[in-house]
């Protein structure tokens, strides 16, 4: 990174300095407040039994065991469908089509629109298409598929950016060595593009776990242990929503569930950034 001149020569520079640091401080403080509040109220209710026991009395008592299982299943379905489609599309857009290509442009435009589609509209669509038309009913499968549609644009956009960030010299060298495009892709471009892919994955998983509106009308409210992917299952975020809005006296368990959700996201983020800094570096050096 290039150092800019850091002398504070005039009032405008001073003002900007104070403003930028002030903004950063303000944002940090707000987020510490939010996380601190959830940690403070949630931590006392967390225990092994809370994580494994089924909810009782509409969630006021008991735990979130079946809800965690449902959440994991929904996320699993979502990733199993969206990862192959997402990475494939990103590779096609970044490496195999020129910018003038009609198919590429159409796909990109339709993904730009998809990225902005409100989650509740995904809920409406999932309800009509997956639950009714395909006959999957209120099920984990419907919920996961709806979420897969939802995270695709984020996944594709970041992965594509990752591929575009790989220097052109990599491709030219590979072409000069007579490597096929498939080999170039698998051994050279894919490892080099992993930071973008991981950012996409983190944002995608974040959006999927965070999602409530798209799931209410697709995976449903049932808080029993799911027996198959065709069972209705309540995601953790819906559980929090239900406890705080519809169940009086559910705040304590809502806090604890929110804490579990936030900790899960922390773990996912941590893994991804660890992968991006260490796992990736080694791979590129050995290639």
């Amino acid at each position: 990174m290039i150092k800019t001149v850091s002398r504070l020569q005039n009032p405008r520079e001073w003002l900007a300095f104070i403003f930028v640091w002030g903004t950063a401080g303000f944002v940090t403080a707000t987020f510490c407040w939010l996380l601190g509040d959830i940690l403070w109220h949630g931590l006392s209710h967390i225990s092994w039994t809370f994580l494994t026991a089924p909810p009782e009395n509409a969630g006021r008592r008991g735990g979130i065991g079946p809800i965690l299982v449902s959440t994991a299943l929904i996320l699993g379905v979502c990733l199993a469908v969206s990862l192959p489609i997402g990475i494939g599309t990103a590779v096609l857009l970044a490496e195999f089509t020129s910018n003038q290509n009609l198919f590429g442009r159409m796909t990109r435009r339709s993904l730009d629109v998809l990225a902005g589609v409100p989650s509740i509209v995904f809920g409406l669509f999932g309800n009509v298409f997956f639950c009714k038309t395909l006959g999957l009913g209120f099920s984990i499968l419907s919920g996961g598929l709806t979420l897969a549609c939802m995270v695709l644009p984020i996944l594709i956009r970041s992965t594509e950016e990752g591929f575009r960030a790989v220097p052109a010299s990599y491709r030219l060298s590979a072409a000069a060595l007579g490597l096929s495009h498939t080999t170039t892709l698998v051994h050279l471009l894919l490892p080099a593009a992993i930071p973008g892919l991981l950012v996409g994955l983190v944002l995608g998983v974040g959006r999927a776990i965070a999602e409530t509106a798209a799931l209410i009308f697709t995976s449903g409210y049932v808080d029993r242990m799911p027996e198959s992917l065709l069972d209705s299952g309540r995601a953790l975020s819906i559980h929090i929503f239900d406890l705080s809005m519809n169940v009086s006296g559910g705040d304590a368990n809502a806090y604890a569930s929110a804490l579990v959700l936030v900790v899960l996201l922390l773990l996912i983020n941590g893994t991804a950034s660890w992968l991006a800094t260490y796992g990736l570096h080694r791979k590129i050096v050995t290639v």
């Binding site: 939010l34 944002l203 998983v205 965070a210 959700l261």
Partner: peptide, 16 residues
């Protein structure tokens, strides 16, 4: 911090 916040569920923000 910002990346973490990007992932925090809307329902948690709403609850807070």
């Amino acid at each position: 911090l910002i990346e973490l916040l990007a992932g925090i569920p809307s329902v948690v923000y709403g609850f807070w």
